[in-house]
Design a protein around this nucleic acid. Structure first.
Length: 424
RNA sequence: GCGAUCGUAGCUCAGUUGGUUAGAGCGCCGGUUUGUGGUACCGGAGGUCGGGGGUUCGAGACCCCUCGAUCGCCCCA
């Protein structure tokens, strides 16, 4: 919107959001549930800076990835150093782990959440400033770590009340398995190169694994018969994957094998996973095409890219906005007590009574502004469990308490406070 | 970076093949009615129809440009 007016209200930055109302309640509900669940699994809370030296991300994530090559918010600070707003958590966590000597706590279970930044075109479920939950287990190379991490993710989704979402699981094998598989895929797709989509012809050079989850029909007919990772897995890699899957079964985590699931970033090895809405489910409809709600995997090579010791690790991240879309309507709690001061002489008492209710642990709202005659209706429209009217009739105080919600449990306690305050 | 759709009151939206002074509902403010009650009625504030240019006797509507939003591709949570 261009305008000659000098004092036009500035607009928010593209891809940023002002979250309010039910959306904000759902957002808070997601974060609160995550905090509760991570404590059950004894993941320790950590806070990292929102920005880092650019090289933290370019080295850890990979120069050639889209995230680094075209999606980072980078800028020079006043000393001329290139800094970047974090596009993901893992690289910063790895840096913190190394610079703070957190090796002493290994194996370390870490959880955090907060804003991330990526310069992309916004669309449904995707923003330039977005928010993620993040959980990592660092310094644990055993498949049990993958299982515990996934069990936590699964419980989180259940506690959020999210249904119609299942765990898609794959293995990328160890470095050798992955390289051999990649070579076979390149060979296979090169043979039919001319029939692939334009995007996939390019992927063949840059990131052949990505062809496997192409949405283009021209690609999909070849994907079905493409070489499978299973044929290239070393004995160790196979044993690792079997330990993960049997551990998930033992923990009661539902999963499905997704042979063409590959993760975008270079550092993933072995386990790769995503929680994705089932086709045709309500969740799928709510999310649009940005459907992955939680994703991650094992990244055994990451620490070395930051000049640290070889350190096995697994982690996942989940988009808070996407999770919140799936649990809208939850998190918004009912108003317990509404107090309508229907006469301006009662406004002071209404405030005092509200304080009494609030100290007793009742969520309370006072209606004492605007036309006195319309305050009762306003209070009523707030749909409280208990509605209290303070009025003046024939020169004397007139008080009334009515219970509007039949199922409300604390009515007797509320009535007691009301009676004590009104001398009745 | 590419593509599609869309910008009218604080919000949700009408607005006919271009035709007087741009409307409704909700919300907000005030009044009348009611007087232990989610009432009804009346009134008010609030819009250079995203911005600029063009076509026309006449543009909210048609054309071009621009800004913005939404959704999709790429990529990803």
């Amino acid at each position: 919107m261009s305008s000659k007016k000098p004092n036009k209200t500035p607009q928010a930055i593209r891809g940023t959001q002002d979250i309010f109302g039910p959306d904000a309640e759902a957002f808070a509900f997601v974060v609160e549930t995550f905090e509760r669940v991570r404590k059950l699994y004894r993941f320790r809370r950590a806070e990292m800076p929102v920005f880092e030296k650019t090289e933290v991300f370019s080295r850890a994530i990979g120069e050639t990835t889209d995230v680094v090559s075209k999606e980072m918010y980078s800028f020079d600070d006043r000393g001329g150093e290139s800094l970047t707003l974090r596009p993901e958590f893992t690289a910063g966590i790895a840096r913190a782990y190394l610079t703070n000597g957190w090796q002493q706590h290994a194996p370390l279970k870490l959880a955090t959440h907060g804003p991330l930044f990526r310069y992309e075109r916004p669309q449904k479920g995707r923003y330039r400033q977005f928010h993620q939950l993040d959980a990592e287990i660092i310094g644990a190379g055993e498949p049990q770590a993958d299982v515990e991490l996934l069990a936590m993710a699964d419980q989180l989704l259940k506690e959020l009340g999210i249904t119609g979402v299942t765990l898609h699981l794959n293995t990328l094998g160890d470095a050798d398995s992955r390289d051999a598989w990649r070579g076979a895929l390149v060979e296979y797709f090169r043979a039919v190169q001319g029939e692939l989509s334009e995007d996939s012809q390019e992927r063949l050079e840059k990131n052949p694994l990505r062809i496997l989850d192409s949405k283009d029909r021209r690609d999909q007919k070849f994907v079905a018969d493409a070489p499978k990772i299973d044929a290239f897995l070393s004995d160790e890699a196979l044993a690792f994957f079997e330990a993960v899957t049997s551990g998930l079964d033992a923990a009661g985590v539902q999963w499905t094998r997704a042979e063409s699931l590959v993760r975008g970033l270079d550092y993933y090895r072995h386990t790769a996973f995503e929680f994705v809405p089932d086709e045709g489910s309500e969740a799928a409809g709510l999310l649009g095409s940005q459907s992955t709600v939680l994703g991650g995997g094992r990244y055994d090579g990451l620490m070395e890219s930051l000049a640290g010791p070889a350190t096995p690790a697994v982690g996942w991240a989940a988009g808070i906005e996407r999770l919140a879309m799936l649990c809208n309507g939850t998190g918004c709690e009912q108003l317990e007590v509404a107090i309508a001061a229907e006469n301006s002489d009662r406004e002071g008492e209404a405030a005092e009574m509200a304080a009494a209710f609030r100290y007793a642990g009742f969520s309370t709202e006072v209606f004492a502004s605007g036309s006195p005659k319309k305050r009762y209706d306003k209070a009523r429209k707030a749909e409280p469990a208990i509605l209290i009217s303070l009025d003046v009739r024939d020169g004397a105080s007139a008080n009334n308490l009515s219970a509007l919600d039949q199922d409300y449990q604390r009515e007797a306690d509320a009535a007691e406070i009301f009676a004590a305050r009104t001398g009745g």
